[in-house]
Design a protein around this nucleic acid. Structure first.
Length: 466
RNA sequence: GUCCCCAUCGUCUAGCUGGCCCAGGACACCGCGCUUUCAAUGCGGCAACACGGGUUCGAAUCCCGUUGGGGACGCCA
């Protein structure tokens, strides 16, 4: 129905906290919708609650959006800079008779509803009291009827206006409330589709009433089901990381997080899950949004992350790994060797954070033997004599090629009548400190002859001390 | 308390214009294969239409109720 008109959507967070998962999902869906329709994605900061808003939070929100790659076409606009405009709007409503002054004290504003005492003040009395300097708030005069609207996700929603009560538009300090702010801004900014969390469903009738009273066309509405924690309760700090930047720090890739988030509450309609941004943009539609709240589960996010990590280009992977290693104070002794190590470790990594633990032995000599690994693979008494012998055989292998290192070990095992696995597992602990690692002989290649030999030597010494 | 909304495997979901569904995919989990540990990978398995009434030849799909869950009721957003 709005084919000829440019689609304009907005993400309007209030800077009273960091960008959390729910907010990020809302921003993401708005972004996808805008990109899909070649429309505009506008960022607006709803900072009319001066006591709880902060510049730091604004920066945090922008940081989160940049991390996710959600670029905006306009803004950020700040409501705090448009106060005059809201007053003007409220004043117009006041003049037109669809709002009235309320002189109640903030503390006892109990009487809401159609029966609010100030509603029956005569225009003359109201104006006189205002002129005498008495403080007042502006309340909207909710008409007695029903308000119905079509939601793109939830369908038809109807409420009896009597449950709405005469809500405040302008506080007695002249600052607009949320309802006034959003409507005025959405009108002024030409917003065509309001896509936001389902927690705003019950606010929508109030806002529609405002559009009507002001004679402005209403935008389309689409409410997104909420994201819940594993306990099905609203996602909160109790559930651990709730800020998207916490996920960035925990080692998730923005693309993986993006893909995962897009599928929370939306589905392309078929079985596809691994989707690029381009595909997501092409496929996205409000029809694919579900109504039921979704639980934010880490298992699948981890899986997505491992997929993206595995599919990342060598350049990207190297950059990510280098950053992580440096952050952990591990300096690769041979940067060129990192690609070889990455090739071996790729499939074993789920989060960027894993790089430092799994990579450590590849680039640092100061690693301990994992206790469990030692208990499992180094307890065989025969190893004490076997390892030094094996070491001397390896010393004779000058080429130290992938095939020869394996052949040397297997032949030695055969000569001694022991299983190759016994030696392989022991050497794995020696070379990596871990009981879990890539194939032993591949590791030897990455480490090189010198490192390998000295580490086997270290194992021999360790076994002597046992 | 009042109002609004939601309800398919443990989780994300497909299905939603009724028969192709004794319900499909993915994650997780459990087996088996491979094997030098762990991954990866291949194969297989476990597992859901909340409940009760209708409507219909036939319902996960439509209607009503119950239960459960969520949201909103601020001079917060």
């Amino acid at each position: 129905m709005l084919k000829h008109k440019e689609v304009r959507v907005r993400f309007a967070p209030s800077p009273t906290g960091y960008l959390h998962v729910g907010g990020a999902r809302t921003a993401l869906f708005n972004w996808l919708f805008a990109r899909h329709h070649n429309g505009r994605f506008i960022l607006r900061i709803e900072d009319t609650d001066f006591t709880r808003s902060s510049e730091e939070m604004v920066e945090g929100i922008l940081e989160g959006m940049r991390w996710l790659g959600l670029d905006w076409d306009e803004g950020p606009y700040f409501q705090s800079q448009r106060i005059e405009r809201y007053r003007e709007f409220a004043d117009k409503l006041l003049q037109g008779g669809s709002a009235y002054r309320c002189f109640c004290r903030v503390e006892n504003n109990s009487a809401g509803g159609l029966g609010h005492p100030c509603r029956s003040l005569t225009p003359a009395e109201s104006a006189a009291r205002a002129n005498s300097g008495e403080a007042f708030a502006v309340r909207f005069k909710v008409p007695g009827d029903k308000t119905t609207f079509q939601d793109h996700v939830f369908g038809s929603i109807e409420v009896d206006n009597s449950v709405l009560e005469d809500f405040v538009l302008l506080r007695s300090d002249g600052i607009p409330t949320y309802h006034l702010g959003v409507v005025v801004d959405d009108v002024d900014m030409g917003i065509t589709h309001v896509i936001r969390g389902a927690d705003h469903i019950s606010n929508t009738p109030k806002q529609i009433l405002l559009y009507l009273a002001a004679g402005c066309p209403t935008p389309e509405f689409a409410h997104l089901p909420l994201i819940l924690g594993p306990d099905k309760q609203r996602l909160s700090k109790r559930h651990g990381a709730t800020s998207v930047m916490a996920y960035a720090e925990a080692g998730y890739l923005p693309d993986a997080f993006f893909n995962f988030l897009a599928l929370l509450g939306w589905s392309p309609g078929d079985d596809r899950e691994m989707l690029t941004r381009e595909e997501l943009i092409r496929l996205f539609s409000l029809e694919g949004v579900g109504k039921a709240d979704a639980v934010f589960g880490l298992d699948k996010l981890d899986w997505f992350n491992s997929q993206y990590l595995r599919n990342a280009s060598p350049e990207v992977l190297r950059r990510i790994a280098m950053e992580e290693l440096q952050a952990e104070g591990i300096m690769p002794f041979s940067p060129g060797r990192i690609d070889a190590a990455l090739a071996l470790l790729k499939s074993r990594i789920r989060k960027v954070k894993d790089f430092s633990t799994v990579f450590r032995a590849f680039f640092a000599d100061d690693y301990p033997y994992d206790e469990a690994a030692a208990a499992r693979f180094l307890k065989e008494p025969a190893l004490r004599n076997l390892i030094p012998e094996l070491l001397s055989r390896y010393r004779q292998d000058a080429a130290f090629a992938l095939e020869s290192t394996e052949e040397t070990l297997r032949r030695f095992a055969e000569d001694k009548g022991v299983k190759a696995g016994l030696l392989i597992n022991a050497l794995r602990v020696a070379l990596t400190g871990q009981g879990v690692a890539p194939g032993l002989f591949e590791i030897m290649q990455v480490l090189g002859r010198e490192k390998t030999l000295s580490r086997i030597e270290r194992l021999a010494e360790y076994l002597q001390d046992q």
